[in-house]
Structure formats: structure tokens, C-alpha cells
């Protein structure tokens, strides 16, 4: 039980630090990075919920986020809908569109078809955006999207995104530890056994798909209100790769993995900028290296260290 407590203490310490950080001399730039971290870790955590827990091999989650972002942006900018409405609407619209157009057909099929279908879906979105230039701004994107409240500064956006981050992570934590989450662990470990328990794979996966796309779409809404703009570059290869790298780096199929991965990637990406045009080369190499040599990610590294420390402690205390 001891190690659970120190982990919990560490988590609380980190959260308190994040809570107090704006008063600890944070620059506008570092606050901006934290906002990015909050939003991307939600996207990554939801993607991981699909991929690592439910075994839905989706490659289109950035597309889900873009749908949410554009929905919220258009509603707020063209129709003047207030943010506390645009964000839930963004989530619901994303979930409805994506679940109907992708989830229902794809989830009945085997893994590789889901990957194909979601990738092609995300690939179709930029041409749709160009088609609907009058509403979406085409290649230019949407700019000057209203913030969460008039006259919002970085600190305000920081706290709103932080609260959102906490709420979504709490929801994901509950799902992972709910009967649905258990059902998935059962499915992952032994499909036949899970069938014997009466787990309906299609229905459970559809539920996760709907919820996960809802939260991802809402994260898209948060993104546009916090940062003020969105363009088809969001759908480019780089955000896609960065998010995949977050999940793989942190540890697929673990609760904390994608969050740790998001922290490393968001703050590390700033160093990566120094590499200039080599950035994507390094990113590709990073993903390949992790998958090939360290499939468990950072989380596994922690577990290994913890194990070693425990063994060391056990050796010192004589067994009775």
C-alpha cells in the first residue's frame, strides 16, 4: 500500500504546483504551453481510451478534434453563441457525426479496417474545408474566435483549461475503473472468456467511441476559444504524429501514460523546434524507436525503477 500513497502524494503535489503556477512568476509563454498541454493531454487520453483500452485502432482522432473546433468556432464567430454552449455543442456534434459516419460501420469490422476508414475520413476533411470556404475560411481557417469571456487573459484561459482537464481526466479515470473498463480489460486479455461473461463487444466499443469522440470534440472547442484560431494545418501530419508520439511515449493502455507523454511532447517540442526542418525526421525516428525497443513507454520505465527500488528495500529489511 505504501507505494500507492507516495504516488498519490506526488500527483497531488504536481496538481498543487499547476494550480499555483501562474503566481510563481509564469510568463505568458509558459502559460500558453500549459494550456496546450491541458488540451493535448485530453486528446491523447481519449485516443488512448479507444486504442489502448477498447482496442479501437483509430487513426482519425485529430479529425474529431478539428470537427469540434470548427463547430465551436463557427457557432461563436458567425452566430454569436456563448462559449459555455459552443463547447458542449461541439462535443455533441462531433460525437454524432463521427459515431454515425465512422463508428457504426467501422466497429463491426476487424482492426485494420477501422484504421483505414478513420485515416481516410480524416484525410477527406481538408478537401471538405476547402469546399466550404464561405463558412470555414478554407485554407486560411478561422481567426479571432471569441475567447471564453470578453477581455480574457492567459491566466483566465489557463484556469478554465485546467478545470476542463481535471474534469475530463476524472471521467476517463472512472470509465477505466467502471464495469465497462473492466469489460475491456477482459476483452483485451481473453476475448473468449469475455464472451462467456456476456460482454457485447460491439456495444461496449460503440459506447467508448461515442464518449471518446464527444470529449475530443469538446477539447477542440476548448482549443479554439483558448487560442482564438483554427486552420486546416491542425489536420496536417504533424499534430497527428505528435499525438501518436504522446500516447506511445507515455505508455499505451495506461491511465497516466498519455498525460506524461503529452507533457514530454508539448514541452519537448519547443526544443525540437531548434532542429528546424529535421523536426519531423526526429519525430518519426522517435516513434519507431519507442515501438521497437520500448513498447511500454515511460510508464513502464517508472514501473521498472519502482520494482528495483522495492527489491532493494526488501533486501535490506530482513524477512521474518
Amino acid at each position: 500500500m505504501k507505494h500507492v500513497n507516495w504516488k498519490f502524494a506526488l500527483a497531488v503535489l504536481v496538481l498543487v504546483f499547476i494550480l499555483l503556477y501562474p503566481w510563481l512568476g509564469a510568463s505568458s509563454y509558459t502559460k500558453h504551453l500549459f494550456i496546450l498541454f491541458f488540451i493535448w493531454s485530453i486528446v491523447a487520453a481519449n485516443w488512448n481510451l479507444m486504442m489502448g483500452y477498447a482496442g479501437i485502432n483509430s487513426l482519425g482522432n485529430i479529425g474529431f478534434m478539428a470537427i469540434g473546433g470548427y463547430t465551436a468556432g463557427i457557432l461563436a464567430k458567425s452566430l454569436g453563441v456563448p462559449p459555455f454552449l459552443t463547447i458542449p455543442i461541439a462535443g455533441i456534434v462531433t460525437s454524432a457525426v463521427v459515431t454515425l459516419a465512422l463508428g457504426l460501420p467501422a466497429l463491426r469490422l476487424s482492426g485494420i479496417y477501422i484504421a483505414l476508414l478513420t485515416l481516410i475520413f480524416a484525410d477527406t476533411l481538408p478537401s471538405l474545408l476547402t469546399q466550404t470556404r464561405e463558412i470555414t475560411g478554407g485554407a486560411m481557417g478561422l481567426h479571432e474566435i471569441p475567447p471564453f469571456y470578453p477581455g480574457m487573459d492567459k491566466t483566465g484561459a489557463y484556469y478554465i483549461c485546467f478545470v476542463f482537464f481535471l474534469v475530463v481526466l476524472f471521467i476517463i479515470y472512472r470509465i477505466v475503473h467502471s464495469p465497462t473498463g473492466m469489460a475491456f480489460v477482459a476483452l483485451r486479455d481473453s476475448e473468449n472468456f469475455a464472451y462467456c461473461l456476456g460482454v457485447n463487444k460491439f456495444r461496449e466499443r460503440l459506447k467508448v467511441f461515442a464518449l471518446s469522440s464527444l470529449l475530443t470534440g469538446a477539447a477542440g472547442g476548448m482549443y479554439v476559444h483558448a487560442l482564438g484560431d483554427i486552420s486546416p494545418t491542425t489536420l496536417g501530419i504533424e499534430p497527428f504524429l505528435l499525438t501518436i508520439a504522446m500516447i506511445e511515449l507515455g505508455g499505451v493502455g495506461t491511465f497516466l501514460g498519455p498525460i506524461l507523454g503529452a507533457a514530454v511532447i508539448v514541452f519537448g517540442n519547443e526544443f525540437l523546434r531548434l532542429a528546424g526542418t529535421l523536426r519531423l525526421t526526429l519525430l518519426g525516428a522517435l516513434i519507431c524507436t519507442i515501438i521497437l525497443f520500448y513498447p511500454g513507454g515511460v510508464i513502464q520505465l517508472f514501473h521498472t525503477i519502482e520494482h528495483r527500488v522495492e527489491r532493494l528495500l526488501n533486501r535490506k529489511t530482513p524477512t521474518t
Binding site: I244, T277, L280, T281, G284, I287, C288, I291, L292, P295
Partner: peptide, 20 residues
């Protein structure tokens, strides 16, 4: 099944940028 997909995706980006 999926780790090979992600690996080849990463390798694809890597090689694309090497070509670049």
C-alpha cells in the same frame, strides 16, 4: 497488428523527410 501500423507510419514520415 497495430504496432506494425504505427511503426510503418512513423517510418514513413521519417523516410519522407529523409527524401526531403
Amino acid at each position: 497488428e497495430f504496432s506494425t501500423v504505427l511503426f510503418m507510419l512513423g517510418a514513413g514520415i521519417l523516410l519522407e523527410n529523409v527524401v526531403l
